[in-house]
Amino acid sequence: MNRAASHVKTIAKRELSSYFASPVAYVFLVIFLLLNGFFTFTAGQFFERGEASLAAFFGWHPWLYLVLVPAVGMRLWSEERRSGTLELLLTLPISPWEAILGKFLASWIFLALALALTFPVVITVNWLGEPDNGQILAGYFGSLMLAGVYLAITCMTSALTRNQVIAFILSVAACLFLILAGFNPVTDLFTRWASPAVVETIAAFSVVTHYDGFQKGVIDSRDLLFFASVIGFALFATAVILRNRRSA
């Protein structure tokens, strides 16, 4: 077990440092923060709302992550396949799980770092008024879980192909489905031919429904379980895809 943890750590460390070895990390961080600022203060009408909360900030995250998280995760496996390093990685005396987990965690930590750098918005809202900081903390936690869900899906699509662009498009499509599943225009589409139970089930897959709970300051175990199981499922699918590949 100790050995496995050490492998996961070594892989995560390598992966994380490779983000910072190229301009990718810096470009991402700058764009992420700029877009967050734009959505919160301009599109989200932070000031016009006249309330001491970060609803304007968190409300945009499902959409912001839709593009940015796949951009962070698309290279995870595609790049290993394209450059042939997958062959090195999978012939090391480690279980594929250790590699999958190490890579996933590295990207998740990177996203957590990006999210942590939005701290000025917390300071701002605390300076202007008296927000419920517990709610803000729950919001951050939910946002991180949401990023984890998108990231796990990107891991899965990235394992499918050696082409990063394909991995990106597939994961955006999959994540978009998870957002839209709960939206009325989409559920209405299904009600035409599916039974209400099926529609209900599809709607329950919407990340937005589960994400909203966190933004209200409620950490519901059902929401948590939903996020954790989507992450678990996507990473499991990654392992299956990697096992069944024919070549690098």
Partner: peptide, 14 residues
């Protein structure tokens, strides 16, 4: 086992 794959891959950014 020590293994050198065909195209001698490595992580270019390291």
């Amino acid at each position: 086992i020590g293994y050198l794959p065909e195209s001698a891959p490595s992580y270019p950014d390291m």
